[in-house]
Simulated assay, not measured.
Amino acid sequence: MARVCSIRGSRVRMGGKIHRSGLAKKKGGIGRHVTKVVKRSVSPNLHTKRIYVPELGRHVKVKLSAKAIKTINKNGAYVTLKKAGLI
Rank of each mutant, 00 (worst) to 15 (best):
residue 7 I to C: 09
residue 41 S to N: 10
residue 18 I to Y: 02
residue 1 M to D: 12
residue 62 V to R: 11
residue 7 I to Q: 07
residue 86 L to R: 00
residue 39 K to Y: 00
residue 18 I to P: 05
residue 41 S to F: 08
residue 86 L to W: 01
residue 3 R to T: 10
residue 39 K to R: 14
residue 66 A to R: 12
residue 83 K to H: 04
residue 4 V to R: 01
residue 40 R to D: 09
residue 84 A to P: 08
residue 22 G to T: 08
residue 78 Y to V: 04
residue 26 K to R: 15
residue 80 T to H: 02
residue 2 A to V: 13
residue 41 S to W: 01
residue 54 P to T: 09
residue 85 G to V: 05
residue 11 R to F: 02
residue 1 M to C: 09
residue 54 P to C: 07
residue 8 R to M: 14
residue 86 L to T: 05
residue 40 R to A: 10
residue 45 N to G: 02
residue 76 G to Q: 03
residue 32 R to S: 13
residue 25 K to S: 10
residue 27 K to A: 15
residue 31 G to Y: 02
residue 41 S to P: 06
residue 47 H to G: 05
residue 76 G to E: 06
residue 82 K to M: 07
residue 8 R to S: 15
residue 32 R to Y: 03
residue 40 R to H: 15
residue 62 V to E: 04
residue 14 M to Q: 12
residue 41 S to A: 14
residue 64 L to V: 14
residue 36 K to P: 03
residue 25 K to V: 14
residue 48 T to I: 13
residue 81 L to G: 06
residue 40 R to I: 12
residue 38 V to S: 14
residue 73 N to P: 02
residue 68 A to K: 01
residue 29 G to W: 04
residue 6 S to M: 12
residue 63 K to N: 07
residue 12 V to D: 02
residue 58 R to A: 12
residue 2 A to H: 04
residue 56 L to K: 13
residue 9 G to K: 06
residue 78 Y to I: 04
residue 5 C to G: 14
residue 78 Y to L: 08
residue 80 T to E: 03
residue 45 N to K: 10
residue 77 A to T: 05
residue 6 S to L: 07
residue 84 A to K: 03
residue 70 K to A: 15
residue 26 K to M: 08
residue 8 R to F: 05
residue 16 G to A: 09
residue 15 G to V: 03
residue 57 G to M: 09
residue 38 V to F: 02
residue 69 I to A: 04
residue 28 G to N: 07
residue 21 S to R: 04
residue 53 V to N: 07
residue 66 A to H: 04
residue 22 G to P: 04
residue 84 A to L: 01
residue 42 V to N: 14
residue 65 S to L: 04
residue 86 L to S: 04
residue 87 I to S: 03
residue 34 V to L: 10
residue 64 L to Y: 00
residue 59 H to K: 13
residue 67 K to E: 13
residue 18 I to S: 08
residue 8 R to Q: 08
residue 7 I to D: 07
residue 86 L to F: 00
residue 80 T to K: 01
residue 15 G to W: 01
residue 32 R to T: 14
residue 71 T to S: 09
residue 23 L to M: 09
residue 54 P to S: 11
residue 71 T to Q: 09
residue 58 R to K: 15
residue 33 H to N: 11
residue 7 I to E: 06
residue 38 V to R: 14
residue 61 K to Y: 02
residue 28 G to T: 11
residue 42 V to Q: 14
residue 80 T to S: 08
residue 62 V to Q: 06
residue 66 A to D: 06
residue 27 K to W: 07
residue 63 K to Q: 10
residue 81 L to D: 10
residue 25 K to D: 10
residue 14 M to D: 10
residue 61 K to A: 12
residue 44 P to Y: 03
residue 31 G to S: 07
residue 38 V to P: 05
residue 2 A to F: 04
residue 77 A to Y: 00
residue 39 K to Q: 12
residue 60 V to C: 08
residue 68 A to S: 15
residue 36 K to Q: 13
residue 53 V to R: 03
residue 82 K to N: 06
residue 67 K to I: 09
residue 19 H to I: 13
residue 61 K to F: 05
residue 17 K to S: 15
residue 4 V to H: 00
residue 21 S to Y: 00
residue 52 Y to F: 11
residue 46 L to D: 10
residue 80 T to Y: 00
residue 50 R to E: 14
residue 61 K to M: 08
residue 24 A to G: 09
residue 3 R to N: 12
